[in-house]
Amino acid sequence: MSKRSKYTLEEKYKILMDYKNGVGSIQEICIKYKISTSTFHEWRYKYEKHGMDGLEESRKYKKYSKELKERALQDYLSGKYSQME
């Protein structure tokens, strides 16, 4: 399981807005806030898809059945969906 984010909803939003407002490149912003570029892209994707709700930290860990995981893997391998989707 992944660890919980040390960034609040507001901090994630500020980081994304810094980039949007031209404060720096993705690389520069990631260095400044000590996050990986993959984390930045994940937050950006979630924000674009779900707005502020996408940046909200889940309050509990989710459990998925083996069958659901296998179907998700098959969908990904078929090329129909991306890893994020």
Rank of each mutant, 00 (worst) to 15 (best):
M1R: 14
S2W: 01
S2T: 06
K3R: 15
K3M: 09
K3H: 12
K3I: 08
R4P: 14
R4I: 09
S5M: 10
K6C: 11
Y7V: 03
Y7P: 05
L9I: 13
E10T: 09
E10Q: 13
E11D: 12
E11V: 06
E11A: 12
K12M: 02
K12V: 07
Y13P: 12
Y13S: 02
Y13C: 01
Y13H: 15
K14P: 00
K14E: 14
K14H: 08
I15T: 11
L16V: 13
L16T: 14
M17I: 06
M17G: 02
D18K: 03
D18A: 08
D18G: 08
K20C: 07
N21K: 13
G22Q: 06
G24N: 10
G24C: 05
G24M: 00
S25A: 04
I26T: 15
Q27Y: 02
Q27S: 10
E28G: 04
E28D: 13
I29Q: 10
I29A: 09
I29P: 06
I29S: 09
I29H: 07
C30E: 00
C30Q: 03
I31L: 09
I31F: 02
K32W: 01
K32N: 07
K32M: 11
Y33K: 02
Y33S: 03
Y33P: 04
K34R: 10
K34L: 05
K34Q: 10
K34Y: 11
K34E: 07
I35R: 08
I35L: 10
I35K: 03
S36T: 01
S36V: 01
S36F: 00
T37C: 10
T37D: 13
S38N: 14
S38I: 00
S38G: 05
T39K: 08
T39E: 04
F40P: 05
F40M: 01
F40S: 05
F40C: 04
H41T: 09
E42G: 09
E42S: 12
W43F: 14
W43N: 10
W43A: 14
R44K: 10
Y45M: 01
K46P: 04
E48D: 11
K49S: 03
K49F: 07
K49Q: 08
K49D: 02
H50M: 14
G51C: 01
M52A: 00
M52W: 07
D53E: 06
D53A: 11
D53R: 11
G54W: 13
G54M: 02
G54S: 01
L55G: 04
L55H: 08
L55S: 05
E56W: 02
E57T: 03
E57M: 10
E57Y: 00
S58K: 12
S58V: 00
K60Y: 12
K60P: 02
Y61I: 04
Y61L: 14
K63Q: 10
K63A: 09
K63I: 02
Y64M: 12
K66V: 01
E67S: 07
E67Y: 03
L68T: 06
L68R: 03
L68S: 06
K69H: 05
R71T: 09
A72T: 01
L73M: 07
L73Y: 04
L73E: 07
Q74E: 15
D75H: 09
Y76E: 05
L77R: 15
L77T: 03
L77K: 15
S78E: 09
S78L: 14
S78P: 03
G79A: 06
G79D: 12
Y81L: 05
Y81W: 04
Y81Q: 05
Y81R: 06
S82T: 15
M84K: 15
M84D: 15
M84N: 15
M84C: 13
E85S: 12
E85K: 15
